[in-house]
Design a protein around this nucleic acid. Structure first.
Ligand code: ZN
Length: 222
DNA sequence: CGGGTTTGACCGGCGC
DNA sequence: GCGCCGGTCAAACCCG
């Protein structure tokens, strides 16, 4: 996966024409995240997630340049670092296996099951993965990143005008989550935060450039 | 019926 | 403890 970071940074030059932060081109433009300073597992994590959106990125850049379209995306993807960095070693652990409850599990009252679930949740919390956020200027909240998501919650967050939505990847056994919320400060911007690594390939192609464009606010000038 | 969303309840962590 | 807050569950609901 070493091709990833280089490929990614290679798109830097095409973008940063101006220093104005508001006119960064497309997500993932410019510096992203220094892989060197992080655990290798983190790199994989990123790749696992980012390939979803990075597929055909260069292609799209070229295409955009041809079209002279400039999607306005304020996007310095943020690494939301967890305080417990020393747990990185566990990131590669595979917790995606199904928790098949054995048939011999006769203590089958809901309480037991719930307890079990709690334990697992606690465990997974302990080894919480890094999260990565992207800011995208867009009218629609749900940006198609090629994976299928099921919404499992929505919450009003303090000091925020807009609610935050919680999604989980619907693929069986895949535990990736994401949160989506619109900024109070600039309600044209949607922040998407990913957590975890997909245990499966992407479900559908993301190289539909037209479709991506429809989700973004764009300038047709220049 | 099989998948998704909605939405209030619930829960654990944290600061006081 | 207690109350707040963010995150999750799950029953109800919706829809092709
Ligand atoms: Zn997934």
């Amino acid at each position: 996966m070493e091709g990833f970071s280089s490929k990614f940074s290679s798109s830097t030059n095409s973008g940063s024409a101006s220093s104005s932060s508001a006119t960064n081109i497309f997500p993932f433009d410019g510096d992203y995240y220094d892989h060197q300073h992080h655990h290798q597992n983190d790199g994989q994590l990123i790749n696992g997630m980012m390939t979803t959106m990075m597929m055909g990125q260069q292609e799209r850049l070229n295409q955009r340049q041809r079209l002279h379209l400039v999607p306005v995306v304020r996007s310095q993807p943020l690494l939301i670092d967890d305080k417990s960095n020393n747990n990185n070693d566990y990131l590669s652990c595979n917790y995606n296996h199904h928790h098949h409850q054995n048939d011999d599990d006769k203590s089958n009252d809901g309480a037991e099951l719930k307890k079990k679930k709690k334990g697992i949740a606690a465990l997974e919390k302990k080894i919480r993965k890094h999260r990565y956020a992207f800011q995208t200027r867009s009218q629609v909240d749900i940006l198609d990143d090629g994976y299928r998501w099921r919404k499992y919650g929505q919450k009003a967050v303090k000091n925020n005008k807009f609610p935050r939505s919680y999604y989980r990847c619907t693929h069986q056994g895949c535990n990736v989550k994401k949160q989506v919320q619109r900024l109070t400060k600039d309600e044209g911007v949607v922040v998407t935060t990913y957590e975890g690594i997909h245990s499966h390939p992407i479900e559908k192609s993301t190289d539909n450039f037209e479709h991506i464009l429809t989700q973004l606010q764009i300038y047709t000038s220049l």
